[in-house]
Design a protein around this nucleic acid. Structure first.
Length: 293
DNA sequence: AAGGCTGCCTGCTTGC
DNA sequence: TGCAAGCAGGCAGCCT
């Protein structure tokens, strides 16, 4: 379940390998991995071959590599199980869906393998469009995605205002990538635990102080997970070298059902919510009625 | 506007 | 032992 920290680990790992490299060859082994590319697998390969790659960028869980002098980017979403692996030429990985061979001016030939067990992830070539900020462009398929909490232009005050104005509940809002991006099921549950907020608390009843605390805890958990190299439970998430992260050892709520809450000792419980699991401490995280003041 | 639900997917785990 | 159902869930799109 790659979320912001895992995608950022991939982006930063990719940066030295791809920046300035030329695409020497593209092989699409699984056309479904290109379902969001507008014109099919052959067009994808033909247009990507020969392109020179620039520094990879990220917003939320979306990762893209601009192609020099083209107004286009190679856009990647890892979905549930996607990986981008930097390998020696000719090396293959299990469940490789797209192979991209690179020629780097300093590192020589390299291979990128886009591997994805469940095929929820995808790649596409997508036009870059201006955001309104000087010198900032994002792919068209990312235009509707909100800034993420590690973006220097993320506006906490604006987030607090918007979340309190929405008639929804708090976990639903955290998972809504048009409200705030980069958060998935793991870090939503972790941030809610840290802020002592129940997942089903109506957002209109969140005080401004509580909403501020929530976004601060979101940022803290994302930052800590990034520092630990992301969360891995198995081979489904690895960095560009195939190594796992360590944050799974730091989880307080997600996957901790039956274990004692690190604050109060009562067991963490897991319930079904939005067709996924919600993990929380029923003692520390209660729905508070009352004023929104 | 909000949200419920489905489809997209495979591999591992659980249950009969 | 073997098979089938259940489970993991990000996102788009449809419908109410």
């Amino acid at each position: 379940m790659p979320e912001l920290p895992e995608v950022e680990v991939v982006r930063s790992g990719l940066e030295p390998a791809v920046t300035g490299a030329r695409v020497a060859g593209v092989e699409v082994l699984e056309p479904r991995s290109l379902r969001r590319h507008a014109h099919g697998a052959d067009d994808f390969a033909a247009r990507l071959e020969g392109a020179v790659l620039e520094r990879p960028e990220r917003r939320g869980k979306f990762l893209w590599v601009p192609l020099a002098a083209s107004g286009t980017a190679l856009l990647v979403h890892l979905g549930m199980s996607g990986q981008v692996l930097v390998r020696e030429p000719g090396v293959d990985d299990r469940q490789t869906r797209v192979r991209i061979d690179l020629e780097h001016p300093e590192h020589g030939p390299l291979r990128l393998n886009f591997a994805d067990q469940r095929i929820f992830g995808w790649m596409a070539l997508d036009p870059l469009a201006p955001t309104g900020l000087p010198d900032e462009r994002v792919p068209a398929l990312v235009a509707h995605i909100a800034r993420d909490p590690l973006d220097p232009h993320f506006d906490d005050h604006d987030f607090i205002t918007r979340i309190r104005a929405r008639s929804t509940t708090v976990k639903r809002a955290l998972l809504d990538q048009t409200m705030v991006s980069g958060i998935g099921n793991i870090y939503a549950d972790e941030a809610l635990w840290a802020a002592r907020i129940h997942f089903d608390q109506p957002t209109r009843t969140l005080s401004a102080v509580k909403a501020r605390q929530l976004i601060a805890e979101v940022r803290r958990v994302l930052t800590r997970a990034l520092a630990e190299g992301g969360t891995s439970f198995d081979a489904q998430y690895v960095n560009v070298n195939g190594a796992s992260g360590y944050f799974s050892h730091s989880l307080n709520a997600y996957g901790q059902q039956g274990r004692p809450c690190a604050r109060c000792g009562r067991p963490i419980v897991r319930v079904k919510f939005m067709n996924r699991g919600a993990h929380y401490c029923a003692s520390c995280q209660r729905i508070r009625g009352g004023s929104a003041a």
